[in-house]
Design a protein around this nucleic acid. Structure first.
Length: 417
RNA sequence: CGGGGUGUGGCGCAGUUGGCUAGCGCGCCGCGUUUGGGACGCGGAGGCCGGAGGUUCGAGUCCUCUCACCCCGACCA
């Protein structure tokens, strides 16, 4: 992508009504656009980050046997009435709408009910189980207050997976397998070392503990108590002696931290399947309950959480795994030879499969290009100028390092491709 | 939803006790000079001051209502 053709622009001032660092940086860099409170548009570069995160999540879910579908945003009322989650007094953050004929519909609050209801068409025998089904979709929640940019919105992107097992033992095996996949996702995103599996309250979704995945961050909404040695934590909301006894944390070693919830997994037991009347027939011909689990990752929230974490005074500092491009190629000046070398480097990198943002703008000054390279947070910066060509080299700098090196073109292609 | 605050060109802001034609910086357009850390000169375009109503000779400024946005709290798979 040539920067001269990119329709988004960077800006020096962040909007005054966006105090959170993640939203300020992402808006200044042109990654997102605020539509209204808690509702954001993903712009070309932001969408790439979002898609990169989705892809990592997708790969890890597929690796544990997840099958991807896309559920609907519009949802029928009756299945939520059966589980007693339609009444606004029970679940107060619905967005609802109506058909012309007056029938009420829900809008993508969560998908346990539609998922279970849909599976009734396909699951009836022990031979059909276990299964893992997921989607990556927009969720709509009528929060009283949106906050902190992408961290708490009213419309957001979530990966939600649902498991259905024959027995509690089978469920637990799947549950742990998915938990391990979650750790791999956070590792690949570069936040594995600061993300803790955390005991939490399952709320209206489960009668048992749920497991949150909490990323340490000073702006996190949650307070958790971390057992550093065991690499697990407990959410403040369940921190009492009786509950602690059910965990295996060392009570004496807990330290308080703020954290962002970047994932959450719940055992559902047979709550939704039983309530919606979905069962299976075992080998002996007896009707049995299906044991469920659900597994969420806030994909768009992760964009905000990563922006919050991977940034410095100059701007964003994306890890390569999610960066909107791998290389920011700066061309300084319009000298014929400089243009020729930069153009061909751009072509060759692309041919080698390297994503490049090529700053070919004629009107932008050198300082502006460097500032933008830093703000956008692209991991590798290459510079082609008369100065570098005099030495027959190309300059290379990593976004997160100070040192600058002059390399041959062949080395650059070798290193980055 | 309770409390607090803010709405003035695309963005950031200023605008005295009400006074004439609403300013500044950034950005934008044109011409020229620049090109290794957000360049410079000259010339331009763009706002009936969130909206509605009211007080007044006169309202960005005062009053009422309303909408939006932000913060704290409550709430939140």
């Amino acid at each position: 992508m040539r920067v001269s053709e990119l329709f988004t622009k960077t800006r020096k001032d962040a909007p005054a009504d966006e105090p959170s660092k993640n939203a300020q940086l992402l808006i200044k860099a042109g990654f997102i656009h605020k539509e209204m409170a808690g509702v954001y548009v993903f712009m070309p570069l932001g969408l790439r980050v979002l898609d990169n995160i989705k892809q990592i999540v997708r790969e890890e879910m597929n690796a544990v046997g997840g099958q991807e579908v896309q559920m609907t945003v519009l949802q029928p009322k009756d299945i939520f009435e059966k589980t007693d989650r339609w009444d606004d007094k029970k679940v107060d953050n619905w967005f609802k709408t109506k058909l012309i004929n007056g029938s009420e519909l829900g809008m993508g609050l969560t998908h346990e009910e539609p998922m279970v209801d849909m599976l009734a068409d396909y699951v009836s025998s022990y031979k059909d189980l276990p299964i893992l089904v997921y989607q990556i979709q927009n969720k709509f929640r009528n929060e009283l207050r949106a906050q902190a940019g992408l961290l708490r919105g009213r419309e957001f992107v979530m990966k939600d997976m649902y498991s259905f097992a024959k027995t509690q033992a089978e469920h637990e095996e799947i549950y742990e397998k998915v938990a391990a996949a979650y750790h791999r996702v956070y590792d690949r995103l570069g936040i594995g070392d600061i993300t803790y599996r955390t005991y939490a309250d399952g709320g209206i979704f489960t009668p048992r503990f749920s497991d949150e995945f909490q990323m340490l961050s000073p702006i996190g909404e949650d307070t958790i108590y971390v057992d550093i040695d065991k690499k697990i934590a407990v959410n403040k909301e369940v921190i009492n002696d009786k509950r602690l006894e059910q965990t295996d944390v060392d009570k004496t070693k807990l330290q308080e931290e703020r954290a962002i919830e970047v994932g959450n997994i719940f055992p559902l037991e047979s709550k939704y399947t039983d309530t919606l009347g979905v069962y299976y027939i075992d080998e002996a011909g007896n009707r049995q309950s299906i044991i469920g689990g659900c597994y969420g990752i806030g994909v768009s929230r992760l964009v905000g959480a990563l922006a919050e974490h991977f940034s410095d005074e100059q701007g964003l500092v994306w890890p390569e795994a999610v960066a909107p491009a791998k290389v920011y190629l700066v061309r300084l000046g319009e000298d014929g030879e400089v243009v020729k070398v930069a153009d061909s480097l751009y072509e060759e990198l692309q041919k080698a499969g390297v994503e490049v943002l090529y700053d070919d703008r004629k009107e932008a000054s050198a300082g502006e290009k460097f500032a933008d390279a830093d703000l956008l947070g692209i991991p590798h910066r290459l510079v082609v100028s008369q100065k570098t060509l005099e030495k027959g080299k190309i300059e290379h700098k990593k976004r997160d390092k100070k040192d600058i090196s002059l390399l041959d073109k062949s080395d650059i292609l070798k290193t980055l491709a």
